[in-house]
Design a protein around this nucleic acid. Structure first.
Lengths: 225, 225
DNA sequence: GTCTATACAAAGATAGAC
DNA sequence: GTCTATCTTTGTATAGAC
């Protein structure tokens, strides 16, 4: 790929952003951001080292002064993406008290907002991880497992406390996280929802899915069910 | 890519299969199946024309006697995938009576089973569509829109009949379909669920998500909520 | 329909000057 | 740190014989 062959259609997002504090200074950081944008749009194999260099106006050879290979650039992005999600989910549990309903809502909100705030990063982290060698994918996979365990623990506890009514917490966790993962594919300026509207709606969906008892809402007051 | 660089990790599935009746006879069909397997595992750009040819023991030049370009092979697969899903969803509604609850369950079951039965096809249709030029992606996108409209119509009617309690049917439809789309990424021989278990569980999840009134289940009988 | 041979472009990566 | 130049491999695709 030298020139984009057609308008981007893979996602509905604009600027390529990285979370605060993780972008390396100088050219290293600019390489990362340019690669993020291209990997998200065209995929790892659909992006050449020359595309990345051209994106920030440097020579392709200069790239190798900062990263030893194209795969190392992807590995850095994939790790940042997984770290950001895991960090937010951990923080969500820390910031919430021991009520399983509140914990599920906080986890789903955290996951959704991570995907609305950094959709390109989420997309690359999820969909291009397979292009990494096992050794370089391992750190991200370890984080992914920790995030999954966190969600499973919250669900399991809610079932034990009889707050939730789920026959299989593994399937429930998969279903809930699936809703969140896909947010990166459709959230963006071409649709009418704010990040908080999506986070609230999906937290509600997740709690309904768990069979948690919720305050009645959105119906005409007094209308019977 | 000449030799696989590492074990497949992108999905949890085995044989590359196409729906009955759509596989072209002879070499054309074998090309399609080989390409399906490779595109699913390594992506469109991660797969070379030589890889596909080697997968069925023919010369790469022979390929061009059957398809004019690599992109045409992908376009054929992407279209088949979207047709299969759309066909199953249409059939699901036709086979179900006018109860919105039954219709949602049937639609979700159809979507889940399409993804459990042809996970590689679903993955390629969803994740590699972006590699097609707009003209060649258009037929699949049209089918996708029809499938989405079908789901929205069912949801809207359920809300009007006050069977469902959803504040925003668009977000509900996105959440429900997200659960189903992701099935292709995790369903396979390495996990303990059957296709019907997943379909049933996800149909249940979807109905809970819509706020539909459901028969009590899975709780000790008589236990109050 | 399938092969051999090959053209031609693009890709990842390195050497060495500034 | 960045550039020019270049090496080498891989990729898409075609020509023409069998």
């Amino acid at each position: 790929m030298t020139t984009p062959r057609w308008d981007p259609r893979r996602l509905n997002a604009v600027a390529a952003d990285l979370p605060e504090g993780v972008t390396p200074p100088g050219t290293r950081g600019r390489i990362l951001v340019a690669a993020l944008s291209l990997f998200a749009e065209y995929g790892f194999h659909g992006t050449s080292i020359r595309d990345i260099a051209a994106g920030i106006g440097i020579n392709s050879a200069t790239l190798y002064g900062h990263y030893p290979s194209k795969e190392h650039i992807l590995a850095a992005l994939v790790l940042i993406g997984h770290e950001e999600l895991h960090h937010r989910m951990q923080q969500a549990v820390v910031d919430t008290d021991a009520d399983p309903v509140a914990q599920v809502a906080a986890l789903v909100r955290a996951q959704v907002l991570a995907h609305t705030d950094f959709p390109l990063l989420a997309l690359v982290a999820n969909q291009e991880l397979h292009a990494l060698s096992p050794e370089r994918a391992a750190p991200a996979l370890a984080l992914r497992e920790q995030s999954r365990d966190l969600a499973l623990r919250v669900l399991r506890r809610g079932v034990q406390l009889q707050v939730f009514d789920v026959a299989d917490i593994t399937l429930a966790a998969i279903a809930i996280s699936s809703m969140g993962v896909r947010v990166a594919n459709w959230f963006g300026p071409d649709q009418p929802y704010t990040r908080d509207q999506v986070a609230d709606a999906f937290a509600d969906f997740a709690l309904r899915l768990t069979g948690a008892t919720l305050p009645a809402r959105r119906r005409d007051p007094g209308e019977p069910r």
